[in-house]
Design a protein around this nucleic acid. Structure first.
Length: 286
DNA sequence: AGGGGGACCTGTGCGC
DNA sequence: TGCGCACAGGTCCCCC
């Protein structure tokens, strides 16, 4: 599920249920996810009020009135769903409303309203940490991130200098979160297609001059449109209420190998770069 | 420093 | 119908 647009979609879905609410109890149903939970996490969150929900790159940030922030990452298969007070009171409705296996419900925020926010993650690549809000930007999670793609800081000049001297393929470089943060496999493939740049092109030449400006613009467009669409729902739901995003219908190349390129009608190709699938049109991406 | 590969997990879909 | 393999939206760590 989770690249920046999916995480932003989750944030928007959770905010009405969580912002301004007190957490009666944080329930941890196992000792760890990808990493061990920080010491006394449940005690330090239970009883605190969530002042605001924020997002940085693919991280969810739950700012507490205690001065701490819960930082969460969804990994590959993590999702967060709101189960409202009525449904939570009815065991059958509880699981039915979310269409996920309760076996992988690892963390539950029990809110003062009676609503529950459930973190479900079959693969357990997701994780939570607790960081002093004032130290967030320098924390190990956020310190090295590049700018948000939709910010002015992600400009052609920033991009060109961030990739200067990088001779590896631009596809791989874009997945590295230090030049621009929040992109993953789907949106990198889609942005390169829009910019008509080959994923195999050297990063430094892809990010320079007119090409670089095209790529920056393409990244911004793709990310903005995907957020607007509620993200991409590939094999499960993206949204906090269990409904589907629909940006997957707008994918030009991702997951469409063998289909005609929407621009030139030649066949979309699938190659492997650094162990990950890359979809692109070899004819109109150069 | 940059780049590649393996590791971490479970679920699913496909070919035989 | 069943089995085994490849693959999945991420990123961390080790190695060259």
């Amino acid at each position: 599920m989770p690249e920046l647009p999916e995480v932003e979609t989750v944030r928007r879905g959770l905010a009405p249920a969580m912002a301004g609410r007190r957490v009666d109890r944080l329930e941890l149903r196992r000792a760890d996810l990808r990493f061990p939970f920080p010491p006394r996490l449940a005690e330090r969150v239970s009883g605190a009020r969530i002042e605001a929900l924020d997002r940085r790159a693919k991280y969810l940030l739950f700012h507490l009135d205690s001065g701490d922030t819960v930082l969460g990452h969804l990994g590959m298969s993590g999702r967060m769903s709101v189960v409202d007070a009525g449904a939570a009171a009815t065991p059958g409705a509880f699981t039915h409303a979310r269409a996920t296996l309760p076996a992988h419900d690892h963390v539950v925020f029990h809110l003062e309203t009676g609503a529950q926010v459930v973190f479900n993650d079959p693969r357990r690549f997701g994780y939570f940490d607790l960081v002093e809000t004032g130290a967030l930007q320098t924390s190990r999670w956020l310190a090295d991130l590049g700018p948000e793609p939709l910010s002015e800081a992600f400009s052609p000049s920033h991009f060109a200098s961030a990739f200067s001297g990088r001779r590896g393929p631009v596809k791989t470089a874009l997945l590295d979160q230090t030049a621009v943060a929040g992109l993953g496999n789907i949106y990198v493939c889609e942005a390169l297609w829009r910019a008509r740049i080959s994923p195999r092109r050297r990063a430094d030449t892809a990010a320079a001059g007119a090409r670089g400006a095209r790529l920056v613009a393409a990244v911004k467009e793709v990310i903005a449109e995907a957020i607007e669409a509620g993200g991409s729902s590939l094999r499960d739901h993206a949204k906090a209420d269990g409904s589907l995003g629909y940006f997957q219908n707008a994918h030009a190349v991702y997951g469409r190998d063998g289909e005609p390129c929407p621009r030139c009608a030649d066949e979309v190709a699938l190659v492997r770069q650094s162990g990950r699938s890359t979809f692109f049109c070899p004819t109109c991406q150069r």
